Computed example of a mutant assay.
Amino acid sequence: MAEALNLAIIVVALLALYYLLKGRPKAPPLPARPGGGSYTPVPEGEPVRHWSDDGRFDVEVLGESRYRDTVLQLAGDHGDGPADARHQAILLPDDANPYEDKAVAVFVSGLMVGYLAPKDALVFRQLLAREDIAGQLTSCDAAIRGGGLWQGKRLAYSIWLDLDLKG
């Protein structure tokens, strides 16, 4: 009798668990990842200001590994040594970004290469607001560095911006 009661309890528990898992509402699907090609912001117009931090290049662009082929192209031919290619960067406050509501997209020579780090994006947006140019395109100089050969392998590239976010 005790075994039958235990078996009945187990069956009821399993049915309840099945009902809870099967009947719960489904979460909406996540949007496709930006690196997958489904989302890329498009800068429109000309930059309203060019920033400079006197050639310090202290602000790193994140996510450039998703744009590896583009960065490789922009780095140019630099042989076995590291690259130090200079370009103009366009900074686009990306309000439509599905992952970060305060994102700032970075384009180098017209090509998407990544984003500012979230904390840098917040500081940058505050700077835009102080200058009364919130939401507008601006530019700065960019340096593509790295990519030298080490033990027969090409090292990663990084992109640095000549942008003063320390205030």
Rank of each mutant, 00 (worst) to 15 (best):
I90P: 09
A4Y: 09
D58E: 14
G23A: 03
D95N: 12
Q126E: 10
L116E: 11
R86K: 14
V61D: 00
E131R: 11
I159E: 01
A75E: 05
F107S: 04
D77A: 14
G55E: 12
A129F: 01
G152D: 05
G23H: 04
K22P: 06
L74Y: 05
A32V: 12
N6D: 11
H78N: 03
L62M: 07
D53P: 03
A105N: 08
P25R: 10
D84V: 10
Y99C: 05
D84A: 15
Y39D: 03
A75F: 03
A134P: 00
L21A: 14
I144E: 01
Q151Y: 11
R125I: 00
A16N: 13
E44F: 12
V108R: 04
S65I: 05
Y115S: 14
G23T: 01
A8S: 08
A27I: 14
V61C: 02
L128S: 07
A96N: 11
T40Q: 14
K166P: 03
F124I: 02
L137K: 03
E131A: 13
E60G: 03
D69E: 15
K102M: 11
L5Y: 08
L14T: 10
G81F: 07
V59G: 06
S158C: 02
M112R: 09
R68F: 11
G135Q: 02
G135F: 01
A105S: 13
Y115C: 10
A156D: 09
G146H: 00
M1Q: 10
I159M: 00
R33S: 15
M112Q: 11
A27T: 15
P43E: 04
V12S: 10
S109Q: 08
D94V: 06
Y18A: 15
L161K: 12
R56V: 07
P47C: 02
A96P: 03
L116D: 10
L92R: 11
A8R: 09
S52P: 00
A121H: 07
K26F: 09
V59N: 07
S139Y: 05
R125D: 01
V113E: 07
A85N: 11
S158L: 01
P43M: 01
A117P: 02
D132P: 00
L14G: 10
N97T: 02
R68W: 09
Q136V: 02
A156R: 09
L92E: 11
L137G: 04
T70E: 06
L111Y: 06
